[in-house]
């Protein structure tokens, strides 16, 4: 036994024979690929958006509370931290939106060949970047 993890690699087949099972390598062994990176990004943006709902709730609650509360949330969203959070929130939303559509396409059985997966992955990144940029151009114009 070269590695202590070898102990976990011993298994039995359904007819009882002992077999030496292969162990999947650790995460850092794999070269990052567009498939794995985008998958991780989908989760990361999902978590970020979940935290970002706090901003939505604060905004709604402040609007329902009164002028002073609403002025507070408005001032926060215009502060450097607020703008940075909103920028991250829009980018996360657009990425999760586009990647989510890609997932729904897969669920319906479309685009599952590897070349198509690579192409749709690139399309999702470009679309999310363009939509984020457009949102901010419009947002800064109307502000």
């Amino acid at each position: 036994m070269k590695d202590i993890r070898d102990a976990l690699m011993v298994g039995r087949t359904s007819d009882g024979r002992l077999v030496h099972r292969p162990l999947s390598p650790h995460l850092q062994v794999y070269r990052p690929q567009i498939t794995s990176v985008l998958s991780i990004l989908h989760r990361a943006t999902g978590i970020a958006l979940s935290v970002g709902t706090l901003l939505l709730v604060w905004w709604l609650a402040a609007a329902a509370t009164g002028d002073a509360a609403y002025a507070g949330v408005s001032a926060f969203m215009r502060s450097p931290i607020g703008v940075l959070l909103l920028l991250g929130w829009t980018a996360s939303l657009w990425y999760h939106f586009c990647a989510g559509l890609r997932h729904l396409g897969w669920d319906a059985g479309f685009g599952l060949d590897l070349p198509q997966v690579h192409r749709s992955g690139r399309a999702v990144v470009i679309a999310a970047a363009v939509l984020t940029l457009l949102t901010w151009i419009v947002g800064l114009a109307v502000m």
Binding site: G66, A71, T90, L93, G139, V142
Partner: peptide, 23 residues
């Protein structure tokens, strides 16, 4: 997720529409 496709598009539009407006 499917419900959120039109809803989030609408919300982005609404947020841009309301941005900078008073309470």
């Amino acid at each position: 997720g499917i419900a959120l496709v039109p809803l989030s598009l609408w919300f982005i539009y609404a947020a841009l529409h309301l941005s900078g407006e008073p309470r």
